[in-house]
């Protein structure tokens, strides 16, 4: 299983990738912004994308919209990472096509199992 993490914060990327990799046995690819993320997604075809909400230039919802427009990436499940999991916001993101939402700060010891639970894999 391969997951792409799109987040501009190196600290978040590195711990999320360690946590998914070491504790979850998941292959991880990183991108430090929306644009880079979209091209890596199209090229590498990950099984899921972990997407930060708040990023400079292209933010999470903007990135999601572009991923959904692109025929090479529109089928890939996207899980948001956000510090504000308000219900209204969650609904909005779901309508936009997000598969799940994880709150930041997350627990690095359970991140992998949460991602797997959202994707419905063991």
């Amino acid at each position: 299983m391969k997951v792409l993490i799109i987040d501009d914060e190196e600290d978040i990327r590195s711990i999320a990738s360690m946590s998914l990799g070491i504790l979850g046995g998941i292959d991880v690819v990183e991108a430090d912004g929306g644009e880079e993320g979209i091209s890596k997604a199209a090229e590498l075809q990950p099984d899921a994308i972990l997407l930060d909400m708040m990023m400079p230039v292209l933010d999470g919802p903007g990135t999601l919209a572009k991923l959904r427009e692109n025929s090479a990436t529109k089928h890939i499940p996207v899980i948001f990472l956000t510090a504000r999991a308000m219900t209204s916001e969650v609904e909005k993101l779901k309508q936009m096509g997000a598969t799940g939402i994880l709150t930041k700060p997350f627990d690095p010891t359970t991140l992998a199992s949460q991602v797997k639970a959202i994707l419905g894999v063991q």
Partner: peptide, 19 residues
């Protein structure tokens, strides 16, 4: 209840709040 529903939809085993 809405917040609980959101938590269920979010894959369970979590806490969600509402503004």
């Amino acid at each position: 209840e809405q917040a609980l529903k959101a938590a269920k939809n979010n894959g369970r085993n979590c806490v969600m709040k509402i503004l």
